[in-house]
Design a protein around this nucleic acid. Structure first.
Lengths: 343, 343
DNA sequence: TTGTACGCGTTATCAT
DNA sequence: ATGATAACGCGTACAA
């Protein structure tokens, strides 16, 4: 089913077939149609490997993500995949499970596969050996979620978003706000969010407090234990939605009403947060849009024959989903009950 | 950075380089080491496109899934990806968003990319035009989640699992059990689960009742409305966990206590179900294992030069996660309160 | 044990 | 407007 069969069937040379299919304008209408008919009849599809070898372009994009078990990255990949499909590109996804060695290996494999460009989320852009290796390969790339002045990044300003959130919480009377995060070493995003929290707390003159949760295990107990201990927090700002969901459960286990006695806010805005009870307040990132944007950025540069540099970085807006799990702080002194009917 | 440079640097022919790297046993130890040193020094990685063209094998597997937004498929893909990485294979994932036309297109693209085999989840195996086209391509493939006697499938027996669950619920006093499902046309799995429900209800002499929820929207209102109407259900058996989560929320909105007044059971066993309040009871599928198994099955056949047939089908066990959201039916007649201390 | 030469399927260059 | 041909990088049959 190669171009040779099509050529034979259409009674032309292989060169003409190639031209008729790739640059229809430069062949005679009659031959063009003959070729098309033959190709259609044989259900001919050009062999992409041969094409890649010849053109030194694979029309494929490598994607390096920490995991697909976190809906954030699954959604991002969905965005990348949709946009790639539209443009006739394929994607080669590889996950690292947050292991730094895995990043290097994956990069090698993607390079060998001849991807035209890469979208990646690394553990820590500042210290990444992977990025150093990537620069040497001179492959176009864009980071997703990571933020670093030396690299082209499609990301959100998590630090400011968290700072704004904390400021808002303070404005609503919260004084005991605890930041819940996972293993900081695994994610520069978590570090940025923590910075935003610390900045806002300092500005409000409040003492910061951090609760670090082990990565894999639900670990509700740790949260429950903290919630039971005085001074009890009035708000939990969580580094991501998966943690926030666990905090919601922990609050229930600890017997604290959300949001009356405790506000819980996540980060990511995963779709499932709309279905919980209470629904999960969260700083929502446009995950799918991050993927789509990163891919479009790359394609633009590929067409132009250039590579995205730090100047190509884009900061997408995140929005606060002020859902049910957040509210103003409970008053310190309980008020008398509101009378049923106006006096 | 081709094999030519390595050959030059090692002072041998390209043929020797190829042999030294692919079949080390048949070259002299000294040359072998020289070649390895040169390859290492140049960070040489064989061009996969050239290799694919020459060998007519791409060491890549196409993966066709409905969506990545449902954690079920994201987890499955993670399993496929992990197993593929171990075996030195790449994966090319494409999603269809439950659109049947998209299945055909995707198949064409995967074939053009020269994948060695395919793993796919189609809307409905019985009526799939995609599967017909696939057979004509003579590409090895395995269906994941789909179940059909004419195809090799890695799946679970959802029908029996739901039937058993319903039987158990009946045994625990439930009499008003409603099945909640999405658009049936989009998924033969949902149809099978419904059959299991209907069978068990018939066996118990109970009247079946189905609540169909529109696919995308949360649609809590529909569930709330049904919960408010007499006769109120005592149990909701949901076709998947995403629906079940919504039912959990709907129950809270309707003021029904779970599981005391209403049991809610899902299907899939997504990881997030452990973190909700109450935790989500669910018939858990081994999603990741389904992916891994499908891939291993394919690789085994690729090695043997054969193609999996219907006889290669595997049914993996699913397990009932009897978490907090399910319990025995409330007694019809309220009992007198239990005395605090024994008489 | 190693080297030479060919072909995998495609597209671009250069003739015609 | 079309055809012949070389080249992309690799693995292998065959020759040495």
């Amino acid at each position: 089913m190669s171009i040779v069969e099509v050529a034979r069937r259409a009674g032309v040379s292989t060169a003409t077939v190639s031209r008729a299919l790739n640059r229809p304008a430069i062949v005679a209408p009659a031959t063009r149609e003959a070729v098309r008919a033959a190709a259609h009849a044989l259900a001919y599809a050009p062999n992409e490997s041969a094409r890649t070898l010849r053109l030194q372009k694979s029309r494929s994009i490598g994607v390096l993500l920490p995991t697909l078990r976190n809906p954030v990255f699954a959604e991002c990949l969905a965005g990348i995949a949709a946009e790639a499909a539209d443009a006739g590109y394929s994607i080669l996804p590889l996950t690292t499970d947050y292991r730094r060695e895995a990043e290097r290996e994956a990069l090698q494999r993607l390079a060998a596969r001849g991807v035209d460009a890469l979208i990646l989320t690394v553990a820590d852009a500042a210290s990444s050996a992977t990025l150093a290796a990537l620069r040497r390969l001179r492959l176009p790339y864009v980071l997703a979620y990571n933020r670093h002045p030396a690299h082209p990044c499609v990301s959100v300003d998590g630090e400011s978003a968290v700072a704004q959130l904390v400021a808002r919480l303070c404005g609503e009377g919260h004084e005991r706000i605890v930041m819940v995060s996972g293993t900081l070493a695994a994610s520069d995003r978590a570090q940025q969010r923590l910075r935003g929290y610390e900045r806002a707390m300092a500005q409000a003159g409040l003492a910061p407090e951090r609760l670090e949760l082990p990565f894999v295990e639900p670990a509700h107990e740790l949260v429950v234990a903290r919630l039971a201990r005085a001074p009890r927090p009035s708000a939990l700002v969580c580094s991501n939605d998966l943690l926030a969901l666990r905090c919601l459960r922990a609050a229930a286990l600890a017997g604290m009403k959300v949001p009356q006695e405790l506000s819980v806010i996540g980060f990511d805005g995963i779709a499932l947060g709309r279905d919980t009870m209470p629904s999960l307040a969260s700083i929502a990132q446009p995950n799918e849009e991050i993927g789509r944007t990163a891919l479009r950025c790359l394609l633009g540069h590929l067409e132009a024959g250039t590579r995205p540099g730090p100047a190509a970085s884009l900061t997408l807006p995140c929005t606060l989903n002020a859902f049910e799990s957040m509210g103003p702080a409970a008053r310190r002194q309980p008020q008398p009950p509101v009378p049923r009917s106006p006096a």
